[in-house]
């Protein structure tokens, strides 16, 4: 047994890492916006929007992937015009992996940020306002720092979910080595090969290290960010 990664393992690992990081970064701005909106504002259709945004959490991932394929495939509502006008093909590409990971992990980030925004004391923003702070300054110096534990939790959960994403990815992006084959997809492939238990075990360990590493990193950052609530 060798400690050096095979080309397939390295490709799957790097793709999983890249797709998961990008999925988290792409999801963050809308999760911040909608998390804040759902926590702080009441408007007609509030509950409907909340349910719609959480849908990927409860739908079977294959269904999410299929719906994305209907939207982004070569004949899809968005994918069709993109290919005709800009020669852009999304389905079965690395971009499709990122999109599948982002859509499926988005509700977890949204939920953590929304709960954090609900729990944050809005009177602190009132206090900042009374000290003459502009709304932008309040957002940057009070609101976002107060939400930061929730943001971090959301990012960690979303990353872990994206690393483990399988159903939506294989439906929208297929399982193409070097292009769309992430760690779970690579593991799925080797389990189809008789006598490849060692290869499967190595991919399991890689997945474990990736997700575990994210959790530990998040824990360390959270400890640095964390402040004790006033009692």
């Amino acid at each position: 047994m060798t400690w050096t990664l095979t080309e397939m393992e390295l490709q799957a690992l790097m793709l999983s890492l890249r797709a998961s990081v990008l999925a988290v970064l792409v999801s963050l701005p809308p999760a911040l916006f909608f998390g804040w909106l759902l926590a702080r504002r009441r408007f007609p259709g509030h509950d409907l929007l909340n349910a719609a945004l959480h849908l990927p959490l409860v739908l079977p991932p294959v269904v999410t992937g299929y719906l994305l394929l209907l939207l982004l495939g070569r004949n899809g509502w968005i994918g069709g015009p993109l290919e005709r006008l800009f020669d852009l093909r999304i389905a079965f590409s690395t971009t499709a992996v990122v999109i599948a990971c982002a859509v499926v992990s988005f509700p977890l980030m949204l939920r953590a940020i929304r709960q954090s925004a609900e729990a944050a004391d809005t009177r602190l923003e009132t206090a900042a306002r009374s000290l003459g702070a502009s709304e932008l300054r309040i957002l940057l110096t009070v609101t976002l720092p107060l939400l930061s534990p929730g943001i971090l939790t959301g990012m960690t959960l979303a990353f872990a979910r994206a690393v483990g994403e399988f159903g939506a990815t294989i439906t929208l992006a297929a399982n193409i080595p070097g292009l769309t084959q992430t760690l779970p997809l690579a593991l799925f492939s080797v389990t189809q090969v008789p006598g490849a238990d060692a290869a499967a075990a190595r991919l399991c360990v890689l997945s474990l290290l990736l997700a575990g590493g994210a959790l530990v990193t998040a824990e360390v950052i959270a400890r640095r960010l964390n402040w004790e609530p006033q009692t």
């Binding site: 009177r123 009374s130 009070v142 402040w227 609530p229």
Partner: peptide, 20 residues
């Protein structure tokens, strides 16, 4: 006049210091 431009220093019952 919006609160930020009223020039009033507010002190609340529970202080409301910025915890971070």
């Amino acid at each position: 006049v919006p609160p930020a431009r009223r020039g009033i220093g507010l002190v609340f019952q529970d202080g409301l210091l910025f915890p971070h």
